[in-house]
Nucleic acid binder design. Structure first.
Lengths: 340, 340
DNA sequence: CTGTTAGCGCCTTCAC
DNA sequence: GTGAAGGCGCTAACAG
C-alpha cells in the first residue's frame, strides 16, 4: 500500500525528468507543443512514480474537472439506483467521472439544507455540474449548471426532468376500466410531492372521462412505502362496497396492497386487480408479476447527464422542462371483472 | 438558480463583513480566538451570501477534507448497493461526507487501472481515505489509508474485510446433508475470485467431512450471473444421475438455477433443493423464498468505514484482515430428500 | 519548444 | 483579537 511515501507532486516529476513544472503540466494536458523525446521522458517518469495530478489543485486553477456530481436522497432506494445506472452509462460514454452524494435521512439537517450544502460543495470546486434526484429544495445558488430529476415541488428556476405522471396514470386507469372495473381504489404517494399529485389527478381525470363518480372514500394517502400502503389497502378492502381494483402510486405501494389482499384472504388478480407505477426491477419477479407504469427511470438519468454535459460545454438548453414518456407494462396482477 | 453570479469566495465574505480573510477563515474553522461580535457578524454574512468554502482549496491547504471515497465496481449491483448502505450509515454517524466512484465495466481501461486511477485521484486530494469494493488490483500507491472489501485476490498489503466464505459454505452444505442430500451440485463463481474459491473449498470440505466423494461432474464454474448459472444448472440437471440439491455460490446464481429447474419441469423445493449465498434483499421475496447464507454485506460496509476513519484519525489497525461472520438463513427453497 | 511568473481560494504562521 | 504574508499543487499567460 506504500503508505510511507507522501503524495507525489508535479514537482517531483519535473525534478526526476529534468524539466520544468510547466513542461510536465503541458504533457499532462496533452498540449502539442512538446518535443516528442521530452514527452516520452516525462511520460516515463509519470508512469514510474505512478503520479496522478491532484484533482483539488487542478480544479482550483482550471475550473474544469471533468467530474459531474449526482445528489441522491438515498443510495439504497430503487429510484435512485435506477437513476445512478442511467447516469453512469451516460458518464462513461461522455468520458466524464461521476461523484455521488447522499442527501437524505440525516438527523441534523433537512434534506433541502443538505442538498444546498452539497451543491455548493461540489459546484465551483470539485464538479463541473450537478444532477439532483427528487430535490426538496427549489432553488440553488450556484455558478455551475444544475439539472433536477423529479423534483418534489415545482422548481421553475431549475432545468428539470420529470415523467409524464398524469398521462401514465391515465393509461393505467384506462386499462382497469377496460377490464370492467368501476370501483377502483387509489393509494397515493406523499401529497407534498408533485409526481404523487400528478398521478392522483390522472386517476381522477380518467374516472371523469368515463363518467365514473370520484368516490373520496376510495382515495387514501400513502407515502410510497409498502408498509403504509398495506394499511391503506386494508382500509380500502374493508369498505362496505370494496373496490375490485387498486391503482397504487408506486410499485412499493402496490406490493403493500397485494400483501394486504393476501392477509384479507383475497387473491390477486382473482379477487383484486392491482396496478403499480415505476416498474422497478423487482416488479417483474414479484408474484404475481406486477402490472405497472414504466417511467424509464434510468433513461431519465441518462438524459439528465446528456443535458448537463451539454450545459457545461456551453450549449443553451432547449427547454427548462423535459417530460419523459411513460408506458403501461401489462403483467399478471390484473384481471377482467367477473372473469374468474 | 442564480447562474449569473460567480462562486462566492472567502474574500467576498471578508469584504462584506469588513474584516480580513484570515478572520473569516478563523470563523470557518471555529477557532476560539475570535471576538464574539466579530464571529456573529461574519456568520451572518456567510449565511447571507450562502457561502461554502471551496472543497478544492480547503483540501489543498489543510490536507483534510472530511470526505471519504468509496469505489465500487457497479452502482447497480446488489453487493455494491448493500455496501453503500452500510457505509452511508456509518458515515452519517461519524460526521463525514461520502463520495462514490464507479470502477467497472469500462471499455478503455481495466478495472484495476481504474481503481488505481481513482485512488490517486481521491487520496491526497479530495478524500481523506478510500474504501474499495471487490478490488481487482492488489496494491495501491497512495499516502492515504485504504480499506478493501472482499478483494478479488489476496491483497496482503491492504487492510481487508472479507466474509467467512469457507465457514458459510460449510454451514450451507451441512444443512443440505442433514436434509439427506448426497448428490449436491455446485455452481461456482468466477474462479479467479478468492471468495468464490473459498466457497468451493467449503463445498468440498463439507463433503469430505461426511465421507461423500467429491464428484467433479457436480462442480461447474459460473460467473455469479443468473444467466450463466442457468446454463450451468441445465448441465447439472441433465446428468445421468442428477443432483437432488444445488448449492450456488451466490444468490443470483441460485435464481438462475431455479429458473433452469422450472424449465426442466422440476419443482423447487419439491424435486430440487437450492441454497444461495449473500442474502440479497430479493432473496426473501423470491418464489420460493431463497434459503441462503447471509454475509451481512451492509455490516461489512459499516465496519470498513469505522476502521477507515480510525486510520484517518491516526489509530493503528489491530489487524490487516477482518473476517466477518456469515449465517445460514433457512427459507423455503430446500426440502428433505424423499420428504415430498 | 521550454522556463519563468503569477495567481486560483484557502489556511497558517507571525507580527502587531 | 486581528491583519499581512507565504505557499499548498497546479495551469496559463508571457518571455526567451
Amino acid at each position: 500500500m506504500q503508505r510511507t511515501r507522501a503524495a507525489t507532486t508535479i514537482r517531483d516529476v519535473a525534478r526526476e525528468a529534468g524539466v520544468s513544472v510547466s513542461t510536465v503540466s503541458r504533457v499532462l494536458n496533452d498540449k502539442d507543443d512538446v518535443a516528442s523525446d521530452t514527452y516520452e521522458r516525462v511520460q516515463a517518469v509519470i508512469q514510474q512514480l505512478s503520479y496522478t495530478s491532484s484533482l483539488a489543485a487542478r480544479s482550483m486553477r482550471s475550473h474544469r474537472t471533468n467530474v459531474i456530481g449526482l445528489i441522491v436522497p438515498d443510495v439504497a432506494d430503487s429510484f435512485s439506483i435506477q437513476v445512478m445506472k442511467g447516469v453512469n452509462r451516460a458518464i462513461t460514454d461522455l468520458d466524464y467521472d461521476l461523484i455521488i452524494y447522499t442527501s437524505g435521512s440525516i438527523k441534523k439537517r433537512s434534506a433541502a439544507e443538505r442538498e444546498r450544502h452539497f451543491v455548493s460543495l461540489l459546484n465551483g470546486s470539485i464538479a463541473d455540474g450537478v444532477i439532483i434526484v427528487t430535490p426538496a429544495a427549489t432553488r440553488f445558488s450556484t455558478a455551475a449548471p444544475v439539472v433536477t430529476i423529479d423534483p418534489n415541488t415545482e422548481c421553475p428556476e431549475c432545468l428539470t426532468i420529470i415523467a409524464t405522471n398524469h398521462t401514465g396514470a391515465l393509461a393505467a386507469m384506462e386499462y382497469l376500466v377496460e377490464l370492467g372495473h368501476r370501483r377502483i381504489g387509489f393509494i397515493g404517494g406523499r401529497p407534498d410531492l408533485q409526481c404523487a399529485d400528478q398521478r392522483l389527478q390522472g386517476y381522477k381525470d380518467a374516472l371523469r372521462r368515463t363518467y365514473i363518480t370520484v368516490d373520496p372514500d376510495l382515495i387514501v394517502a400513502g407515502d410510497f412505502s409498502a408498509e403504509t400502503a398495506q394499511q391503506c389497502a386494508q382500509r380500502l378492502l374493508s369498505l362496505p362496497q370494496r373496490p375490485t381494483a387498486i391503482f397504487a402510486a408506486n410499485d412499493q405501494s402496490a406490493i403493500g396492497a397485494i400483501e394486504a389482499a393476501r392477509q384479507a384472504g383475497l387473491s390477486v388478480p382473482g379477487d383484486l386487480s392491482v396496478v403499480g407505477f415505476d416498474n422497478i426491477p423487482e416488479a417483474a419477479f414479484f408474484n404475481p408479476a406486477l402490472t405497472t407504469v414504466d417511467q424509464f427511470i434510468d433513461r431519465m438519468g441518462q438524459v439528465a447527464t446528456e443535458i448537463l454535459v451539454g450545459l457545461i460545454q456551453g450549449e443553451r438548453p432547449e427547454s427548462v422542462l423535459y417530460k419523459m414518456p411513460t408506458q403501461l407494462v401489462v403483467r399478471d396482477s390484473c384481471r377482467a371483472v367477473g372473469g374468474q
